[in-house]
Computed example of a mutant assay.
Amino acid sequence: MDSELTMLAQSASATLVALMATDAWERTRDGVVALWQRARPERADAVADELQSTREDLAADPTAEQELAAEWQGRIRRLLTEQPQLAVELRKLLNDLAPGTDADVTFSQRASAAGNARIYQAGRDLRITER
């Protein structure tokens, strides 16, 4: 799967779980279920139930937000792998639900170094000149 769809799944899952505790929840749930309805109609009802269960888990333990988002990232990633054309609809849904986010640009980076190692990371262009 290409990195663009992986990043989209990551952004979508984080947004989805974050919106579970807001007034936009019903719209969020309906939009996500509609995506599954188009791609895998036989799973749409189960996805609606899983969303409700995730929301209840989040209400019971707000510290589990990252774990729950990771679970949904996997589900969304698998859906996008099967139906990559849904990426356009998912981006539109994210932008409608959370206008301040840009699903096309969201990314994360991690690095670790030991000893004399150096790490260079950039979200875009990077020029390193060492002498």
Rank of each mutant, 00 (worst) to 15 (best):
E65T: 13
A59N: 06
D96R: 13
A87V: 00
L8N: 04
I76L: 14
A114V: 14
A122P: 03
R27I: 10
A122E: 14
S3E: 09
T28L: 15
Q73A: 10
T101R: 11
T129K: 12
D23R: 09
T63P: 00
R124H: 02
A98S: 10
V47K: 05
R118C: 13
D23L: 09
W25K: 07
G100F: 03
L93C: 04
D104M: 02
S11L: 07
T81E: 14
E82Y: 06
D125R: 15
A34R: 06
A113W: 09
A98G: 03
E42P: 01
D61S: 05
A111G: 15
A46W: 05
L8D: 03
T106W: 13
T129F: 08
E65I: 14
A44F: 02
A69S: 07
E26I: 13
L80P: 02
I128F: 06
F107D: 12
A46C: 04
E130C: 12
V32I: 11
L16Y: 01
A44R: 03
Q121N: 14
V33Y: 01
D61N: 05
R91T: 02
V17W: 01
P84V: 09
A44S: 06
T129Y: 09
A64C: 08
E65N: 11
V105D: 11
T129W: 05
L35G: 01
R43L: 07
Q10Y: 08
D96I: 09
G74Y: 07
S13Q: 09
S13G: 11
T22P: 04
L90D: 03
L8F: 06
L5N: 09
E130K: 14
A9H: 03
L90M: 11
R29L: 07
S112K: 14
R77C: 08
I119Q: 14
E130I: 15
Q52I: 04
D49Q: 07
Q37K: 12
A103H: 01
Q121G: 15
E71R: 13
M1C: 05
G100V: 08
R91G: 00
Q66S: 12
V32M: 08
P62G: 09
Y120E: 14
D45R: 10
L80W: 03
D23M: 10
M7N: 10
S11H: 09
A48V: 09
R78D: 12
A69N: 01
A69K: 00
V32A: 04
V88C: 02
A34K: 06
G74V: 13
R124F: 01
N95R: 07
G115V: 13
L16T: 03
E56K: 08
M1P: 04
T54E: 03
Q85A: 14
A12P: 00
E56P: 04
A9M: 05
D45N: 06
T28I: 14
T6E: 12
Q73I: 07
D45G: 05
D104P: 00
D30R: 14
A69T: 10
E65Y: 10
L68A: 01
T63K: 13
R38C: 00
P99N: 03
A87W: 00
L35K: 03
V88G: 03
